[in-house]
């Protein structure tokens, strides 16, 4: 539910990073925050536990400049990935315009990725939204890991993207690899979905 102010020519759109616990959602936002420090005027807001796990959400407002004559503000959010936080996770999805699903590439996390994606589909459904219609980008994160077995990309595609058929990136939120391309992709998909409003 992007908010488009035709009077002040401003758009506020909500993009949510979703995925299993410890998958790297918060690390994605931290990288974006450090990379675009000079363009982001406010601090990143994180509601987290003492152990640095996301408890409610991270929030980062990001001014991306003018698109089609509108001043576009993208509000980046992460959800808590831990299974037990489903109630708060669902609240963060309220009014979402675009999503990044951050999957963990470790072989040991395969099942968690699939369950989390299924959980996303169910939670979107509570807002009468379809995972097949909402702008969505997949990120296969932690490709930098060397000492643990990683899932082949084809396997991850098969597990998560065989029906969705959305853009996907191999990435590393820790090194920053493909973090910005992931963000750019979801912004352009989200803006494209708003085109009919921004005439």
């Amino acid at each position: 539910m992007a908010f488009v102010n035709m009077k002040s020519k401003e758009v506020q759109a909500k993009i949510v990073y979703y995925g299993p616990g410890r998958g790297g959602k918060t690390t994605n936002l931290e990288y974006i925050y450090s990379k675009f420090r000079e363009r982001i005027k406010s601090d990143m807001v994180s509601i987290k536990t003492h152990g640095d796990r996301t408890l409610f959400f991270d929030f980062l407002p990001f001014d991306i400049g003018k698109i089609m004559g509108y001043d576009v503000k993208v509000q980046l959010y992460t959800v808590p990935g831990q299974v037990k936080y489903d109630a708060t996770r669902r609240l963060v999805l309220k009014g979402v315009d675009g999503m990044v699903f951050v999957a963990d590439s470790q072989v040991s996390q395969r099942k968690k990725n699939i369950l989390s994606l299924k959980n996303l589909q169910e939670n979107l459904a509570t807002y009468k939204k379809s995972i097949f219609k909402i702008p969505l980008v997949l990120q296969y994160n932690k490709r930098d890991l060397k000492d643990v077995p990683l899932l082949p990309v084809q396997q991850m595609d098969k597990d998560m993207n065989s029906q969705l058929k959305v853009p996907s990136f191999e990435g590393s939120a820790l090194t920053g690899h493909n973090v910005v391309p992931t963000l750019k992709k979801i912004i352009s998909q989200t803006m494209a979905s708003l085109q009919n409003v921004l005439k």
Binding site: D43, V45, F57, F59, P61, Q75, T88, K94
Partner: peptide, 15 residues
Amino acid sequence: DLYSLAALASANFAA
């Protein structure tokens, strides 16, 4: 910082 306040306020209300 009004944008952060708005994000937190809506989340707080929802919670």
